[in-house]
């Protein structure tokens, strides 16, 4: 299994896209470190510059009451006086926290949607390659069980992807924490979530790759499935379709992974300290991934090459 693990690592290194992903991750945290200049005074944000442009020009006190043109306090719907901090985005209690959370939400969102997609392109062909004639002949005639062969392959892909996600999120977290003094370890919980969802996506690549032996087909099916799950996640969908199809659509929503729910709710909320809501979307997605892997292993063990 070690041999196949190492071989896969070398294959990933040879695919320049994986190296490129690490370069992009480096560019992200270096850019964040250099471009965002924060003036923090006594734990509060006194000023901020992005790429040298002043974005906050004066000290900001989130507790300062908001007043209208006549000097009267502005009240919210419940009649409570509003302050300058009332509208702070991304669950920040202070402007500084909001800036940190905004940056982290941006990075985690980009890593989830764009990063997983790029990682998929970088690693998608690896499973199908394993089944190609000439290559399979050499590898599958070694004294290794089929499970060890597929397991070694997957282990290497997962190790690289976990390293990539940890590197990106860890570096961004360190940069933001050191610059602001706000240490929010909760952001790091996005690492297992993003990695877990990559593993779910990759389970489809694995299953289709083992079944068809085609790298392009496994990518097309996976992307198609991702699109379908996004459509199924539209809340109004069940009420707008024919009653006959409703159970099918609702059933498909529950069976298939919930990329949309995890990507739009759980990942940003982890980054911004908000309520992540129910774990059902993540748990059911992981269950789907587990089932796909089990099927892929069973198929790979029985197939003729």
């Amino acid at each position: 299994m070690t041999g196949l693990f190492l071989l896969t690592l070398r294959e990933l290194r040879a695919r320049k896209v994986v190296v490129g992903l690490f370069v992009v991750a480096t560019v992200v945290w270096v850019a964040l470190a250099l471009a965002l200049q924060l003036d923090v005074v006594d734990g509060s944000l006194a000023g901020a510059r992005l790429f040298g442009q002043e974005t906050i020009e004066e000290p900001f006190d989130p507790d300062e009451p908001l007043v209208d043109a006549e000097g009267d306090p502005v009240l919210d719907d419940d009649g409570v006086p509003r302050t300058r901090g009332s509208d702070l985005p991304f669950n920040g209690d202070t402007l500084l926290e909001s800036v940190v959370f905004t940056a982290q939400a941006f990075v985690s969102g980009a890593a989830y949607w764009i990063g997983i997609l790029l990682a998929l392109f970088a690693t998608g062909g690896l499973i199908a390659t394993l089944t190609e004639r000439g290559y399979a002949d050499v590898i599958l005639t070694k004294p290794l069980s089929r499970s060890a062969v597929l397991g070694g392959r997957l282990l290497a892909v997962m190790a690289v992807m976990l390293a990539l996600v940890t590197y990106l999120f860890g570096a961004v977290w360190l940069v933001m924490s050191i610059k602001t003094g706000i240490w929010s370890p909760r952001f790091l919980l996005a690492i297992p979530v993003v990695f877990g969802m990559f593993a779910v996506v990759y389970s489809v690549v694995t299953l289709v790759g083992v079944w068809s032996g085609s790298g392009p087909l496994s990518l097309i099916v996976t992307l198609g499935l991702g699109f379908v799950t996004l459509v199924l996640a539209i809340p109004e969908l069940p009420t707008q379709i024919d009653r006959t199809w409703r159970p099918l659509v609702v059933g498909a929503y529950h069976v298939l992974p919930k990329f949309g729910a995890v990507g739009t709710t759980m990942v940003p909320q982890l980054a911004t300290g908000g309520d992540v809501g129910a774990l059902y979307p993540l748990a059911s997605s992981l269950a789907f991934g587990g089932a796909c892997y089990a099927l892929a292993f069973a198929l790979f063990s029985r197939k003729d090459y």
Binding site: G3, L6, G134, D137, T141
Partner: peptide, 22 residues
């Protein structure tokens, strides 16, 4: 095997080493 394929980026020495490890 007939028509075998080895990863093209490996050297001959690396190829022998990796496949022997397996």
């Amino acid at each position: 095997p007939e028509g075998h394929r080895f990863p093209p980026f490996l050297t001959a020495r690396q190829t022998l080493d990796l496949f022997a490890r397996m």
